[in-house]
Design a protein around this nucleic acid. Structure first.
Lengths: 193, 193
DNA sequence: TGTACATCAGTGAACGCGCGTTCACTGATGTAC
DNA sequence: TGTACATCAGTGAACGCGCGTTCACTGATGTAC
């Protein structure tokens, strides 16, 4: 494969991820079809498979971007917070904001079904650890006396809790409450801790 | 339609729900197919549609049973707990136990995609309120000074939090921790509150 | 530079599979006389 | 009780749709002489 070809394929790869991203945003992961991607990216149907082995692998790239955005949002939210507790609240609310503003992208993180490959699971775990690190730092400040293992466990616990609140809070079927109320729930939980 | 026919259809309806339940337990909601149900229940493919308008409606019956089981499990778990805090912990752990022991049934509660019908959403909300009532009672005892609205909000908050912990805890992709650890996370959260 | 040829990137029609739902038909049941 | 007929519950082949992936082909690109 020539350099030229490589470059062309790399460009097509990006165009496909862009198209997939727009598709996810517009209609959710399940709405993104191979034929639409090809049309959007200006290539043939078969060309997709010159760049990616299958669609899930392509979707992983979209999720990678989403993880990066989420990471940036959490990171930014804690800037300038006076106390670790305020930083925790700010991050949790930033998570809610992101999920609310980019529901379909955020959902895709959890909806994508991966081929059974431990490498892919690891990839997810690594991204999550990235998100956790922001929380862990704040918790370590909040509880200077607790050991690392306990901080790690509570990091996971808090993330999962906030995730659960956001998940059920944004799902019509399970809650008829307005989004502001979800924010109050998060504050309520963190106030108790 | 004669009485005899009605009775036969009611029996077939039950046989179909039984079959669907077994299918969900064995392979998850997505694995249950109309043809398998007909074969299992000993009727023709078309006969399904004499009893239920479509498969989602049939699956709702399975979910109704699951909600009832969950309700019974939560209710039973708090019997004989000395304090409201212990009752809350017991219920949360019972939720975890149920999700762990009956993962596919439990998942089906959240995976079933409903036709857009407000009545079906209401049905779900009603079942959830049933589960919430156990938690609300314990919280009201724990915090006798707080008002009803606040208790209600914290009920929802705690349920969602525990749900989030269980959800991410049982998902391989997002956690490589053993199930016991999930129980400790739940205890950890409730200990802080 | 020009010509003949080889390679291979890219194409898109077709494959293959899955599956919920329908509807023209059949034969069992019940009714009328 | 027996016969002719009507009704309608139940059947399952076929419809209809969707869609990821493949692969035999084409034509553009590059190479050799």
């Amino acid at each position: 494969m020539s350099e030229k070809t490589k470059a062309r394929r790399a460009a097509l790869g990006q165009a496909l991820v862009d198209a997939a991203e727009r598709g996810v945003v517009a209609g959710g992961l399940a709405s993104v079809k191979a034929r639409d991607l090809a049309a959007e990216a200006g290539c043939s149907l078969g060309a997709i498979y010159n760049v990616y082995p299958d669609l899930p692998t392509l979707f992983m790239e979209v999720n990678a971007r989403t993880f990066a955005e989420l990471d940036a949002a959490l990171s930014a939210s804690q800037d300038g917070q006076a106390t670790p507790r305020e930083a925790l609240v700010a991050m949790a609310l930033a998570y809610l904001d992101y999920a609310e503003a980019h529901t379909n992208r955020w959902r895709a993180l959890f909806d994508l079904e991966l081929p059974d490959d431990p490498a892919l699971s690891d990839w997810y775990l690594t991204r999550l650890r990235g998100l956790f690190s922001h929380i862990g730092r704040a918790l370590a400040q909040l509880w200077p006396d607790r050991d690392r293992a306990e901080i790690e466990m509570m990091t996971r616990t808090l993330f999962s809790s906030v995730h659960g609140i956001v998940l059920l809070g944004l799902e019509r079927r399970f809650s008829n409450i307005p989004p502001e109320e979800v924010g109050r729930m998060i504050r309520g939980l963190l106030a108790e801790i």
